[in-house]
Computed example of a mutant assay.
Amino acid sequence: MVPRQVEVQVPERPESKVSGLLPAGFVPGRFGARPLVGGRNRNPFRPSDAEVRANLAGEASADVAHALHEAEESSTEPADDEPAPPPDLTAAAFFDVDNTMVQGASIIHFARGLAARKYLKTSDLVDFAWKQVKFRVSGKENSEDVASGREKALTFIAGRSTAELARLGEEIYDEIIADKIWPGTRALAQMHLDAGQQVWLVTATPVELAQVIAKRLGLTGALGTVAESKDGLFTGRLVGDILHGAGKAHAVRSLAIREGLNLRRCTAYSDSYNDAPMLSLVGTAVAINPDSDLRELAKNRGWEIRDFRTARKAAKIGVPTALALGAAGGAVAAVITRRREHLLAS
């Protein structure tokens, strides 16, 4: 069953209007003309472009998640077999996906499935995998890699239907991702469900794929990166930016307002230091399979640490490197398989 689709369009940002001509060295401002400082239009009291994009991404993600949740609740009939636990209306759990709920990077697994279906070139798959390796080893995002990955992803989906992407997500989840769910993290999510709490995924992965993962796991829903769509087709633009860092925190905060949640009673789980804003937003933070920076932060702040990784080769090559090699290994295996099929066909 293809998840319900929600039309998403980029909101227009109103421009400041200042009548008349401005003197040299002045620019329009919220309260009239103001001087141009240092040759650039800088305003320390105004959010940066990156912050604006992060906020837009968070708002869009919360809007989509809340709309889908309401639609799901209105169309779901109560089960007759087992009574549902009494709802805990103000508490929820928020789970990062990559290396927290899913072993490796979900976007890499998705790319493998797309490559097997001839949607992506093998060179694109290797490029995705290499960037993931660099990120997992360094623990830091490279702005050029992020921009490049964003442009390739948007080029791929531009003009495609939202239903097609959701269908591909379901197929690839069943083929690849289902076997890569961390049992320990899944058990934690079930613990919150059994307590009558909402459980949400929060990820930079496209929201269509994130929703599929949440649906398959029986979770409440997902907050993910939102691409603009019109008349059921992707336009090739993001709403805001990729959902990560501060954007995730903004999405969680926005969803909490819509769902009537008390963030002090909520719990967040992640493996990455980049999710510190989200982890710091809730009453209880848990580090799952943490990178070195998050492990240190968790120790300093007294956060619980859970590590479900069994292959402990940290003494030799370091845990982040092992995880990265695992993600890249799957991608390389897919490339080899495709080349072998090509040779046999020829």
Rank of each mutant, 00 (worst) to 15 (best):
P3S: 08
P3T: 01
V8K: 02
V18D: 05
G20K: 05
G25Q: 08
V27Y: 02
G29I: 08
R40Y: 02
F45A: 13
R46C: 03
S48A: 10
H66A: 11
L68K: 05
E70F: 01
D80F: 10
P87R: 11
L89M: 07
F95C: 06
D96K: 00
D98W: 01
Q103A: 13
A105P: 00
S106P: 00
G113Q: 07
A116Y: 10
T122E: 14
S123H: 06
D127C: 07
F128R: 14
K140H: 13
E141K: 13
E144N: 14
V146F: 11
V146L: 15
G149Q: 14
R150E: 04
E151I: 04
L154V: 06
G159L: 09
S161V: 01
S161R: 15
L168V: 05
V202W: 05
V207Y: 08
A214H: 03
G218Q: 08
T220F: 06
D231R: 11
L238K: 10
V239W: 07
A246W: 08
A249V: 01
R253D: 13
A256M: 03
N262G: 07
P277D: 06
L281W: 03
D291M: 05
S292A: 15
E296Q: 14
I305D: 00
T310V: 15
I317Q: 07
I317P: 00
T321A: 12
A322W: 13
L325W: 05
G326A: 12
G330L: 09
A334E: 14
T337P: 09
H342G: 13
